[in-house]
Design a protein around this nucleic acid. Structure first.
Lengths: 158, 158
DNA sequence: TTCGATGCAAATAGTTTGCATTCTA
DNA sequence: TAGAATGCAAACTATTTGCATCGAA
């Protein structure tokens, strides 16, 4: 199904080589852009544009939120990063290598639980069979109730 | 799994009996609230708060958007209606009986395809097995690429 | 030396909220 | 006639955009 080489969706191992990727694409490497990149490499997992603009809580210099959004968009188009939406909150951005394949999100308690890649195959197949769609679990997570909240709402009948 | 009687998630057959449901719950029936209810009964499928506030395009008197949101919330808490989020757009509200059990939404072309209730069972089971969650397909739809867009993006390698 | 990118601010979309007033029960 | 609900406006969150200026290539 997937070709051996992957022109997009690569995650260079460090900022320097990511910078090279950008230059190869004819994109300029400004201070602000490098900062966004640095934040994404420094972050353990997915972060919001807001958090990046705030320098990950002071670890890096602040930057303009508008420019952060523009750069996140640029980096995503360049195939370096991806983003996901969880519930009603802000978008969560991360290097492809640091994004969970899929996440289940509890709309009651907010629990976020990553889903194994192996389990995903079954899910993906089930959806394909049900409606012919290729699910983008990476972009919008599976939303529902975690086991605990589901059990609780089964009881609650005021 | 489901008890025989259903105290919430009922959809009275007409506005009048919905109004009774509200009163039984100790809720008042104001002109504005009745208007929202009327809009939902008149609408063929899911509608936005904006559309309701605009009287479904003139079919009904306009109402205040803020109050519409408050009333939609009230009606949802009363178990009369539900809402779903599709992509980044506004919330879609509808009587329970007029909401599809689940919808697949193509994030490329915007196609919305309802999913059969029978197919849903398999999906729900697959998710439960994968992560222990009870999926709320009704609230946030399955997001991905429709068959056509998926095929196209398999080819596109600029 | 040219465009691409920036920083700032204003605009946007969707939704929520504060508050004085109105109206239902 | 108590207090629930309204209408209006302002606030809010997440994101986009216009524009003059700056700076990377």
């Amino acid at each position: 199904m997937s070709t051996s080489h992957t022109p997009h969706r690569v995650t260079p191992p460090d900022v320097t080589s990511a910078v090279n990727t950008l230059r190869m694409r004819g994109l300029r490497v400004s201070a602000a852009r490098r900062l966004v990149l640095e934040a994404l490499y420094r972050a353990e997992g997915p972060v919001t544009a807001e958090e990046i603009a705030a320098g990950l809580g002071g670890a890096l210099p602040d930057s303009d939120l508008g420019s952060v959004y523009r750069n996140l968009d640029t980096l995503e188009r360049a195939g370096l990063i991806g983003h996901a939406h969880v519930g009603h909150g802000p978008g969560l951005y991360a290097l492809h290598s640091r994004r969970p394949a899929a996440v289940a999100y509890c709309e009651r308690c907010g629990e976020r639980r990553p889903i194994d890649r192996s389990r995903l195959v079954v899910l993906r197949d089930a959806v394909r069979e049900a409606c012919g769609f290729e699910v983008a679990f990476g972009h919008f997570p599976v939303i529902g109730l975690c086991a605990a909240c589901a059990a609780e709402s089964d009881h609650a009948h005021s």
